[in-house]
Write a protein that binds this DNA or RNA. Structure first.
Length: 206
DNA sequence: GGAAAGATCCCT
DNA sequence: GGGATCTTTCCC
């Protein structure tokens, strides 16, 4: 568990073993830990999105495949896939085994190992982890972790929660073309939250 | 077997 | 605003 943080959940699996629309906002404040020989990389989750089986925007909408099998696993397994042939996306399965729902981790605030993220990203500061592809690159995450449990191994999730004065915001999800009206993106007012591209009408309600 | 689309990022 | 880059999925 993240040091000094009380979450009300015995474990990260307990946090995730609920309907994804409840666990996705509750995952904010939890920490992503990546063990490397040089030491630990750590980042605090500030933005998530929920994806569900009855959701046309979800990879699980048309049933289970080899790739998406981890999304149908019991709560607390990584689902990591390549997006646009370029970027790895980090997701966590939610709910009981057989239900295809999970959470996309879109952004996080670096807490440890920042100096080792900089050369990987070729950038620094907010650009290290303020987007899903950026986060995976900074933490050196790819599909070798897909299907593995989130509470053990070299890529882990440790439960945490927002600070006392932090507010959880919600908005439509980013970069999808289906079910765009569902406000299933959750984020904290933290500078590392991803930049959202302006849509054609010029405004996006956040 | 081929083709198209995609939960993004970065440079022009 | 568009190109990179490649896997998965879908439809011949």
């Amino acid at each position: 568990m993240a040091s000094g943080v009380e979450t009300g959940f015995e474990s990260v699996r307990d946090l995730l073993d609920r309907p994804v629309l409840e666990s996705a906002p509750d995952l904010l404040g939890s920490e992503l830990v990546r063990d490397e020989p040089e030491g630990e990389l750590r980042a605090r989750i500030v933005e998530t999105e929920a994806y569900r089986e009855d959701d046309p925007a979800s990879h699980t909408f048309s049933g289970e495949t080899d790739r998406t099998a981890p999304m149908f696993a019991s709560a607390g397994h990584w689902y990591i896939y390549l997006c646009y042939g370029v970027h790895w996306m980090i997701n966590v399965s939610c709910g009981p085994q057989g239900r295809g729902e999970g959470i996309l981790i879109r952004a996080a605030e670096p807490l440890a190992g920042e100096s080792r993220m900089v050369p990987r990203r070729g950038m620094e500061g907010l650009e290290l982890t303020n987007g899903p592809g950026k986060l995976a690159e900074a933490l050196d995450v790819d599909d070798r972790f897909s299907g593995r449990p989130v509470d053990s191994g070299c890529l882990r999730l440790e439960p945490g929660e927002p600070h006392e004065d932090e507010v959880i915001y919600r908005s439509p999800r980013v970069g999808i073309n289906e079910a765009t009206e569902r406000p299933w993106r959750f984020y904290l007012d933290n500078p590392y939250r991803s930049e959202v591209p302006q849509n054609e009408s010029g405004r996006r309600r956040d």
